[in-house]
Simulated assay, not measured.
Amino acid sequence: MILALRALGVGDLATAVPTLRGLRAAFPGETLALAAPAWLTPLIVAIGGIDRIVAAAELEPLDMAPAMPRIAVNLHGSGPESHQRLRVLRPGALWAFASAPAGHQDGPGWHDGEHEVRRWCRLVRYYGVPCDESDLDLAVPGADVPHGVTIVHPGAKSPARRWPPERFASVARRLHEAGHHVLVTGSPAEQQLCVRVSELAGLPGAVIRTGLGELAALVAAARLVICGDTGIAHLATAYRTPSVVLFGPVSPVLWGPPADRAYHQVIWHGTRSERGDLPGPVHPALLAVTEDEVLAAAEKAQDAAASQ
């Protein structure tokens, strides 16, 4: 068995897709297991080639994981905690970044300024596994969703990455006036924010509640996605849906869509990348983004998609 650890969120899973597919191709006769949160199952299925899902929460022991896998692959972090979570399973080999605190030297060095997709591909390449960084597409989950909508997604994991709801509302209203069918999406914890944005936009019926599979299908069928630096941006990349992604503390060089796709527009006014989980108020780089900029970028994204 090959066991990969990636017990994080939507965007984290999406950026590991090329690496997971590289592992699948390199070990066609082995069971490939992925330790990840169970709620990500619809996206794990959409990757294809994962034989077993091991329910795992971030930073929790891997109680459900099988002992003594042939290879344990740490796609979770630089160590030492994630290295140790896999070591207790007594794998035949641990593929991970070198970590002196974990006592693991057999691995490449960690680079802070590296794009997340490239990072994990580089790790498995070190161990001889070919990896295609452009292999980001996902299968579309079977779900009955409206087609051709424009998604406005105001939420993000940390307050520092949330553009003000008033500005999202202004963009939603102006897109609606331009003929877009606007829907506002968010996680269950973000429903109050979604309602506020929809009401400020004068679109009180625009909030749509979905599970993860339905959200993925909605993005795949959408006309446009407007969002911050969060998981749904990676779904837009996975389904090649035109998007505008607003970055704050974290540079798009680290987490942005492929630079050669003009139908994914990014806006960032930062000068250096910081932690993405900052607990404070909206990051100044994000506050510098204007509604007019977002609308202009939306037009560019749609024009680029139309010319494909």
Rank of each mutant, 00 (worst) to 15 (best):
M1I: 06
A7K: 03
D12S: 01
L13K: 02
T15M: 11
T15I: 06
T15S: 05
A25M: 04
A26F: 07
A38V: 13
T41F: 08
L43P: 05
D51F: 12
I53K: 13
V54A: 15
A55V: 13
L59V: 13
L62S: 15
A65M: 05
M68P: 08
A72Q: 12
R90K: 12
L94A: 01
A98R: 14
A102P: 08
W110I: 04
R118Y: 07
W120F: 15
R125S: 13
Y126E: 04
Y127L: 10
E133F: 12
S134A: 15
P141F: 09
D144T: 15
H147E: 14
G155S: 14
A156Q: 08
K157I: 15
P159Q: 12
P159R: 11
R161L: 12
R161G: 04
W163G: 03
W163R: 11
R167M: 00
R167C: 00
E177P: 05
H180A: 09
P188K: 04
Q192S: 14
C194N: 05
R196D: 06
S198Q: 02
G205P: 00
I208C: 08
A220T: 01
A220D: 04
A222Y: 01
R223E: 05
V225P: 00
G228E: 00
A233P: 06
L246D: 03
S251F: 03
V253A: 14
A262P: 06
Q265T: 08
L278S: 10
G280S: 06
V282E: 11
L286S: 05
L295M: 14
A296R: 13
A297H: 03
A301I: 04
